[in-house]
Design a protein around this nucleic acid. Structure first.
Lengths: 242, 242
DNA sequence: GCAAAAGTGTTCTCAATACACCCATGA
DNA sequence: TCATGGGTGTATTGAGAACACTTTTGC
């Protein structure tokens, strides 16, 4: 959690105003690095559990803008299209104990947050973004923020593990658009690199030749010159998204 | 709006407690009657505008349960699967004027609801249900409740017209499951009746023979005996959903 | 018998799939 | 030269679309 977040959080906890009560946004932010599909996790200070980056919605703020703000603060990324993937509105999705621990971790006294111990409804947004290691202010991501392999997640707070799963399912059904828009791979890239990315997201092997035809059929790839360097074998074409 | 609703509404307005503040659910409830795709609309007492049936979320209530409750009160239907189709969270989606008119229509005095004049975030659910003309208590649907042809809607409150459009898009993409689950047609029905239903929902003509093959290919239809009565021509098969 | 509605068959296309083969490279 | 990775061609399958033909029925 960034300092800025702490600030907003404290302001919310103390003032109890300025935000829409009992409403939050949580973001499942995927990236791809070192052949792994990763999710951005945060560890609110003093709380021993990892969680999704989330935030509150200011009274004058669109709900989606609140999610975008969270994304910007944590990764410095702007103009990234966020997509709704679910609403988490079960009355008992947060236990009283977990909530209390959360507020205590913010350094609050019990009497300060007792009135806040109500159920929260959370709106879930996801995005697939470039791998970044800097927060909005240009500083490196703090210790309490990390990219974690989606296939080996630590225990997460509340129902955040469910959220990741639902977001992942949604990402998979919209993989073509998401990958093309994300500009995730350093261009130009080889077809093999693109295939590995797809296989990582879908978590299953794809057939090389069919994959190539399918990708070229989408009409979003431009073929460029050849690659000579690294390969110990035939030099593959390079591509980039239109 | 039913009496029961009025009651809940007043209680909310007066007590300002018991519900999650600034959060609502709105339901787009589709049915099919007289070869028209219809949407359930309500007209809050005294307000000159039609609106979607909506409600608030009690503190101990799941968000989806709040939507189901609305559906049950208005139509008496239970166990109907509701599906999320969107979140409407723009800060300015309700104008102050419209909100004021809404509260005034409830018979409230200005000083009673002034503190309530805040933005609302609404969770949108939709369902495709059998055509019913009775509310939960067995009484006929009141004057302030009507089924209206989706293709000729009156002006709706707030952003409810957008909601209907989004819900309709979602319904169309899941038409097979929705129609099969809805038990909308009186069984047994002819293939022609089913096709007309599809054409009404999709708002475009379908080819008779291809439609038949596609439907039978779904594996959810059971073919029965013949129909003799009405037809002035060849007697068609009858079907029902498995 | 004829028009209209209903049932069924045929063809074409396209995408997805699976299999197979050739090419280029560097160890 | 040969194992490996990369590029491409081909056959098969199934769904969807478009067209055609036959069957049944009341008038």
């Amino acid at each position: 959690m960034t300092d800025q977040d702490q600030e907003r959080m404290r302001a919310y906890l103390r003032k109890g105003a300025g935000f829409v009560p009992q409403l939050s946004v949580d973001c499942v932010i995927f990236t791809y690095h070192e052949q792994q599909l990763k999710v951005l996790l945060v560890q609110p200070m003093g709380l021993g559990t990892w969680a999704l980056p989330g935030g509150f919605v200011a009274q004058q703020q669109d709900v989606e803008a609140a999610a975008a703000e969270t994304l910007r603060e944590r990764t410095g990324l702007r103009e990234v299209p966020l997509h709704l993937f679910g609403v988490f509105g079960k009355a008992d999705r947060q236990t009283q104990d977990a909530q209390r621990a959360f507020f205590l971790a913010q350094g609050m006294e019990a009497h300060e947050f007792e009135w806040l111990m109500k159920r929260y409804v959370s709106i879930g947004y996801y995005a697939l973004v470039q791998h970044v290691t800097e927060a909005a202010d240009g500083s490196p991501l703090a210790d309490e923020v990390m990219w974690q392999d989606v296939y080996s997640l630590p225990p997460l707070a509340f129902d955040h593990a469910d959220m990741v799963n639902q977001a992942l399912e949604t990402l998979r059904t919209h993989i073509d658009q998401q990958v093309a828009q994300s500009r995730l791979l350093p261009e130009p890239f080889t077809m093999n690199a693109l295939q590995t990315l797809y296989e990582t997201i879908l978590n299953r092997p794809l057939r090389r030749n069919n994959f190539q035809r399918r990708m070229l059929g989408l009409g979003t790839l431009e073929r460029m010159e050849k690659l000579f360097t690294g390969g110990a074998h035939k030099a593959p074409f390079l591509y980039r998204f239109l």
